[in-house]
Design a binder for these strands. Structure first.
Length: 761
DNA sequence: AAAACGCCGGTTTTT
DNA sequence: CCGGCGTTTT
């Protein structure tokens, strides 16, 4: 059947060997998703395995969704009965059924990283410890590490005996778990660990799930941590049909607990396993692949592999060394424009990859000035915005009144005259009486809280009113009602600043998210909605529609591909980073090198390396050598190598540019923000919201729109600004600047290609 | 209780 | 340089 015909020999082998443990080492661009999806399809359609007996685990929602839709293309709706999801979503699914076995109630909530941080901070403060020695960051790291290594509070306590500092941290850890439980909450690590705990302590469940999952498949296996490894082993323990796919050369997440030895030890952990290497690359040109191989061969890897391709040789990767980071950005712009004109590439074909988010600044400045549309992945995220967190806190409190964290967040937001002192009283009373802070406030009179009595009563009345209606009205209605009754919206409106306006816009967007959810969900519920938000996040939906250059970190780029890639900041101290160099740890350096390998192999057709002689970062300027990773590629395999050693190389007015942007930054930014407002900024602002529902309306491909229809006097509709009338149209390059008088937002000038204007009949 | 000031720290990121 | 957070000021 054609399911197998499309596969090369190795891929075929990986697909049809369904029985027993199987490790697939899949090089970059070698078709690993294809193998996974075809294997699932093969199991169902050829081996007659029931979809609900198959478990497929990924790391991101994006990967899970992609896998789902690709399997669906192969075998249709049977995929809906499968267990496909992230580690976390699959465990939550199990926990929602079984968590009572470890004494939590089924409507537990999930604390995200920032909730976690807030809670830990409180605990450190209450314990009267020096927060220099016990910083929230280090304590959080220590606790998470313990959880990653599957040590519960008792085991951790035993382990650190004799180490004064960590003994204290053990106390904090216990207190932290206690508080979580009081809030009926679990954190991300608990999601995995509690699932394991339940399986360990309940033979009936271990045997139920173990027997249920006849086939287990795990994607990105090099990114698993110890807990995830144990979970997978348990779920596959009965049938032993486990397929894992990964690439040890792409392990770039050890800093968050990923343990590359999981993939290296697979044969030991799962005796009798079969190992298949996918080495044919379908993505990159030969020249790009050569460069990647040259870099990665400097690592000592256990699974030697050498990627090859039948693709054309292509152009040599280019290297360019600029004077400053602004010059570097100018070079990028010139190359983008050149390729656009000469080879008809579109903006969306380009990606700029950097080591640190802060590197995007200079590039953004120049892109704005040069009118290059762009979108940024990462950085500020939608759900991390204050106003979004606030409305979520309201909803959480309505859903679960024992959520003290949320109460703390919004009780005085907007200002209700319930300040620090009163709140800490409430907190003490809550601890003393072992009831939630909300209950205390509800009975303010009984506890002698006369000072805040009136405002507390108003607050409680409002929440109670919302609780009453929450199941009978739509979530979007609940949100609107909450924003009104709480006075939140009103206080924002009163502020009357641009910032407040943008907050209101974001809240509107949040409302849209809720409405989309209602339409999409089988049985919409507030709890499911909130859970979806916590478990969803960013990078998930880098849609290839729209038309802008993508800017992101190398980490975010994993799993993606672009026709043209710029790897910027190829400098000692930037990439590899200063910390890695000064640590002297060869393992860390190898991870940086893997990151470089990941970056190079994102490029399909053109690859540019850029670096700068001089760079201002965190306010001070440093002079950097060219990255060692560049030097690992033989000179004759790169174009422009001469430039990087020519110290006299001077580009046009680099000082001028630097000066201009340092001094006029704000002005420039404001000016260009509105020209790009519909393009760069809004995409970036709302990306996460889109990712959560991933069903948002597809934008028109801006490059194919008919610009001639915009004329003076024509009525148009803009997504954000509403309806307006065109005053005049001005030609600018290959685009038109349209001057519009909007009814609600006044006078704006927008670039026609990017504005997404619709003609109003 | 809320605004203003001043210091520190600062890869990478999913869920 | 820039944001977060704790402290001081009004």
């Amino acid at each position: 059947m054609n399911l197998l015909e499309e596969l090369n020999d190795k891929q075929y082998e990986a697909v049809v060997n369904t029985e027993g443990p199987c490790l697939i080492i899949a090089g970059a661009g070698s078709g690993k998703t294809k193998v996974l999806t075809h294997k699932i399809a093969y199991l169902i359609s050829e081996k007659n395995i029931k979809p609900w007996d198959i478990l497929a685990i990924t790391f991101t929602n994006k990967a899970a969704n992609e896998m789902k839709s690709r399997v669906q293309n192969l075998i249709g709706d049977a995929v809906l009965d499968m267990w496909i999801g992230t580690f976390h979503s699959i465990c939550v699914r199990i926990l929602r059924k079984q968590i009572e076995r470890i004494g939590f109630s089924k409507d537990f909530i999930i604390f995200d990283t920032s909730d976690q941080k807030t809670l830990i901070k409180n605990i450190i403060k209450n314990a009267n410890l020096d927060d220099k020695i016990y910083s929230d960051k280090s304590v959080m790291y220590e606790i998470s590490k313990a959880k990653n290594e599957m040590q519960d509070t008792d085991e951790y306590k035993k382990k650190v005996k004799g180490d004064f500092r960590r003994e204290k941290i053990a106390e904090l850890y216990s207190e932290y778990q206690k508080k979580l439980k009081e809030n009926n909450a679990i954190d991300f690590d608990d999601i995995i660990n509690f699932t394991i705990k339940i399986l360990k302590e309940n033979d009936d469940l271990l045997s139920y799930y173990g027997n249920k999952f006849k086939y287990v498949l795990v994607d990105e296996y090099q990114d698993t941590n110890k807990a995830q490894f144990i979970l997978v082993s348990m779920l596959a323990s009965v049938n032993k049909n486990i397929t894992v796919v990964g690439d040890n050369d792409q392990g770039i997440y050890s800093f968050r607990g990923a343990d590359i030895s999981n993939i290296l030890n697979f044969e030991k952990d799962f005796p009798g396993s079969r190992i298949i290497k996918l080495e044919q690359n379908y993505r990159c040109t030969q020249s790009i692949l050569d460069a990647a191989n040259e870099v990665i061969k400097n690592n000592e890897t256990k699974y030697e592999k050498k990627l090859w391709t039948k693709n054309d040789k292509g152009n040599k990767p280019q290297i360019f060394r600029a004077e400053t980071e602004y010059d570097e950005a100018n070079y990028i712009v010139s190359q983008i424009n050149l390729l656009k004109i000469q080879e008809y590439y579109k903006y969306k074909d380009f990606a700029i990859l950097y080591r640190m988010n802060s590197q995007s600044r200079a590039i953004e400045d120049i892109f704005r000035r040069e009118n290059i549309p762009y979108k940024i992945v990462g950085g500020l995220k939608f759900y991390e915005r204050k106003e979004i967190k606030d409305i979520i806190a309201y909803l959480r409190l309505i859903q679960n009144s024992s959520d003290n964290l949320s109460l703390n967040r919004i009780i005085n937001e907007p200002k209700r005259g319930i300040g620090k002192t009163s709140l800490s009283n409430v907190e003490d009373l809550s601890n003393k009486n072992s009831i939630s802070m909300y209950e205390i406030i509800k009975d303010a009179a009984k506890y002698g809280l006369n000072r805040i009595y009136t405002s507390a009563k108003d607050f409680v009345d409002m929440i109670e009113e919302l609780k009453k209606v929450k199941n009978s009205i739509k979530i979007s209605e609940l949100i609107t009602m909450t924003l009104e009754k709480s006075g939140y919206l009103e206080s924002l409106k009163k502020e009357n600043t641009i910032e407040a306006e943008s907050r209101i816009e974001n809240l509107d967007e949040f409302l849209t998210v809720a409405m989309e959810y209602e339409e999409q969900a089988a049985e919409p519920s507030l709890n499911e909605f909130l859970e979806g938000i916590t478990l969803s996040s960013d990078v998930d939906d880098l849609d290839d529609d729209g038309n802008s250059v993508t800017l992101m970190t190398l980490h975010s780029a994993k799993g993606l591909e672009f026709p043209i890639v710029f790897l910027v900041g190829m400098e000692e101290g930037i990439f590899p980073g200063y910390r890695t160099i000064s640590s002297g740890d060869p393992n860390e350096m190898e991870e940086e090198r893997r990151l470089c390998y990941v970056g190079i192999t994102r490029a399909k057709e053109y690859l540019f390396f850029t670096c700068s002689k001089r760079r201002t970062i965190f306010g001070s300027t440093s002079y950097n050598e060219v990255s060692r990773f560049i030097k690992e590629i033989p000179k004759d395999m790169l174009d422009g190598y001469d430039n990087i050693e020519n110290q006299d190389f001077i580009t046009k007015d680099s000082y001028d540019i630097e000066w201009t942007y340092k001094n006029n930054y704000t002005k420039e930014k404001e000016k260009s923000d509105f020209i790009h407002s519909d393009n760069s900024n809004s995409t970036f602002k709302f990306r996460s919201a889109e990712s959560f529902l991933k069903s948002l309306n597809v934008k028109k491909d801006a490059e194919d729109i008919d610009l001639s229809k915009y004329k003076a006097g024509v009525r148009v509709y803009h997504k954000k600004f509403g309806e307006g009338t065109i005053n005049y149209v001005e030609e600018e390059g290959d685009d038109f600047k349209v001057d519009i008088e909007f009814e609600k937002f006044g006078h704006k000038r927008l670039m026609a290609r990017f504005a997404g204007l619709e003609i109003v009949e």
